[in-house]
């Protein structure tokens, strides 16, 4: 089924980008540190977000992709808030690259969430 295929591709794309994003945070790339300093969350917030992103990526590649997509969408919501309220759209002179990646993850994870809504526990279980 075409629909299923798109879902799998979306899961893969979101997972790869999430792994990259969390990796940058774990190794303490200077851009990441700058961002979390601006948010006054350095260093704890950086590690918390990195862990959630990694978790979401792993779940997206497992049979719990529905749960993973919810986590990923949640983190991306947080990132959107950060960019809109504190950081601005262009960060560290990247020409909007970071925000672009963020939106890609958002769309992919959002798609997965919608197409796998029935698999989400508590919420989706009753949708049958």
């Amino acid at each position: 089924m075409k629909h299923r295929k798109i879902t799998y591709i979306a899961q893969g794309v979101a997972a790869i980008l999430l792994v990259i994003a969390s990796g940058m945070k774990f190794i303490g790339h200077e851009h990441s540190i700058a961002i979390f300093e601006a948010l006054e969350m350095e260093p704890n917030g950086r590690y918390i977000i990195a862990i959630i992103e990694l978790g979401a990526a792993i779940l997206l590649l497992s049979s719990y992709a529905g749960v993973g997509s919810v986590l990923a969408v949640g983190v991306m919501f947080g990132a959107v808030i950060a960019h809109l309220t504190k950081l601005g759209l262009v960060v560290n002179d990247d020409g909007g690259l970071l925000v672009g990646m963020l939106l890609v993850v958002f769309v992919c994870a959002g798609y997965v969430m919608v197409s796998r809504r029935r698999e989400i526990p508590m919420v989706g279980g009753s949708q049958r």
């Binding site: 006054e40 969350m41 917030g45 919501f77 947080g78 808030i81 950060a82 309220t85 504190k86 919420v123």
Partner: peptide, 25 residues
């Protein structure tokens, strides 16, 4: 939670995100 996230500490935005998803749902 959005306001506290903005004025007090960004950590409150964990709650903002939670409630945002709840409202959308």
């Amino acid at each position: 939670s959005g306001m506290t996230g903005y004025f007090v500490s960004f950590y409150f935005h964990f709650l903002t995100v939670f409630f945002m998803m709840l409202v959308l749902l």
